[in-house]
């Protein structure tokens, strides 16, 4: 029983290997880039525009609105990072309708990579917003005693982020695989639909949590009188 597409290795040279996760990710990257290019090549600034442009505009503005609602006052700055997390995860789960497809998010390596990116991005954005001192001080709040707990929370939430996505995606693919062996025909399709829904929900959860973390890291100073605004 295969738990992760990491196990499908196409080519290996010592430490370096080319497994299904990386290849499928490249495919997704290609799909997203080519799709975006195809649509944005003929962008219209006028009142009349194509359906695809409309779709992309809706997606981008919706992401932007979500970021703003969570509490980041300059969504443009975070749009690339947070928007890409959402689009990548969502596309990865949407493509599960393709037979033989293995979602790269079903690999713990991928989700850990994403979680690590968030783990690095949070302090970077925080430092950019309020400086190194200001950011580091946020670990000492409300008291210095809370420092180890703050550090532990930082690490554990990153781990949780990675495992949550991996578990959901992996289980979705797994359930369909198991069900196919037990109940043929209709039932796996229903489970596939459920898998699509959970995939979208996971994409939303992952990106919204990342947004919340970044917001917590950058908002500390603005809400200093209230303090302890970290989740």
């Amino acid at each position: 029983m295969r738990l992760s597409p990491d196990e499908i290795i196409f080519w290996q040279y010592g430490f370096i290997k080319l497994n299904a996760t990386i290849v499928v990710t490249w495919g997704l990257m290609l799909l997203l880039t080519i799709g975006s290019t195809a649509i944005t090549r003929h962008l219209s600034a006028g009142l009349k525009r194509s359906r695809w442009q409309n779709l992309l505009e809706i997606v981008v503005t919706a992401i932007e609105k979500q970021i703003e609602e969570v509490g980041l006052s300059h969504p443009h700055k975070y749009l690339s990072f947070l928007g890409t997390i959402f689009l990548f995860v969502a596309t990865a789960s949407l493509c599960t309708i393709i037979p033989g497809y293995e979602p790269p998010t079903g690999s713990l390596s991928t989700t850990v990579a994403l979680a690590l990116c968030v783990f690095v991005a949070v302090p970077l954005f925080g430092i950019e917003e309020q400086g190194v001192g200001g950011y580091l001080k946020s670990y000492l709040k409300p008291t210095i005693i809370m420092l180890p707990f703050n550090v532990i929370s930082e690490i554990s939430r990153t781990l949780a982020l990675a495992v949550r996505l991996f578990g959901n995606m992996m289980s979705g693919a797994m359930i369909v695989g198991i069900l196919l062996t037990i109940t043929p025909f209709i039932f796996p399709i229903v489970m596939s639909l459920l898998g699509l829904l959970t995939g979208m929900v996971q994409a939303y959860i992952f990106s919204i949590l990342a947004t919340v973390y970044i917001a917590a890291a950058t908002r500390t100073r603005q809400h200093e009188p209230e303090s302890g605004s970290a989740p």
């Binding site: 490249w26 880039t33 944005t40 992309l56 890409t84």
Partner: peptide, 28 residues
């Protein structure tokens, strides 16, 4: 290795989407 590769892939994707998706759409 896959983790590092995926992190790189992700960062490249961020750049690509920023270049080909967000910027043109936001500009439009």
């Amino acid at each position: 290795f896959t983790v590092i590769a995926q992190a790189l892939n992700f960062l490249i994707l961020v750049w690509l989407l920023k270049r080909f998706l967000y910027k043109p759409i936001l500009n439009a």
